[in-house]
Design a protein around this nucleic acid. Sequence first.
DNA 1: ACCACTACCTGAAGGC
DNA 2: TGCCTTCAGGTAGTGG
Length: 281
Amino acid sequence: MPELPEVETVRRGLAPVMEGRRITNAEARRPDLRWPFPERFAERLSGQRVLHLGRRGKYLLAELEGGETLLAHLGMSGRFQVEGEVVGRFHHTQPGKHDHVILETDAPARITYTDPRRFGAMDLWPSATLEGHRWLTAMGPEPLGNGFSTAVLAEALRRRSSPIKQVLLDQTVVAGLGNIYVSEALFHAGIHPSCVAQKMSVARINRLVEAIRTVLCAAIEAGGSSLRDHRQTNGDLGYFQHSFQVYGRESQACARAGCAGAVHRITQSGRSSFFCPHCQR
DNA sequence: ACCACTACCTGAAGGC
DNA sequence: TGCCTTCAGGTAGTGG
């Protein structure tokens, strides 16, 4: 689920019940996700007002009134679900076995973090030195921000002898791309996933930068529309999954008008890449 | 500095 | 129905 567009969609879904709201109660129902929660995790969250809910790459960042920021990563299977007030209080639904963190805010709302695989992670860190947190310190530029450009990407690719597919998954090169949107962006740019990163021309890198921005923006817009039903901020792929051009479409016809080719799947560093051999060189 | 590979964990899906 | 294998959107740590 969670690459940059999904995390941004989750952020937008959570903002109305978190930003400017106070966390009236916090509960961690186990001691860890991928790593242990920080000391006194729930206590440090309880009673805090959320000043701002942001995002950096695939991390959600909730800046708290007391000077700390909650960092959250959804891993592979993490999701936040929001329930509003029903009659007086919340539904008396029993937490499921994969519901690991529960936050209640004075929106009022109950926010449940669910993560079957527990590849997700949460931490608390002083807001003043947030960029120094080990999860953020080496992270590359935001692809939709001013820090990402043809020149910046070209510099990052200069010494990389790996296929462009693998290099784009490296979060220190550019933040927020994952296996789906790398495939989609490479298709959009007409670049073969096996293309050696450092051999790419500036013109092709420029096309890639544009493709990354286009694909991510389209996905965020589509994700936004799935939030109309905001009772469940499901971290699902939203409607954009119906717009994938290559991801998950092995052996289906290429989506480009006039192309008679079919989508191929190859494995690169143990992960699937989807592409059209006619359109991508 | 870079690269290939492994591990972490559970559930879904497909083959038999 | 059930058992087995394979695969899944991520990242950190290892050793070359």
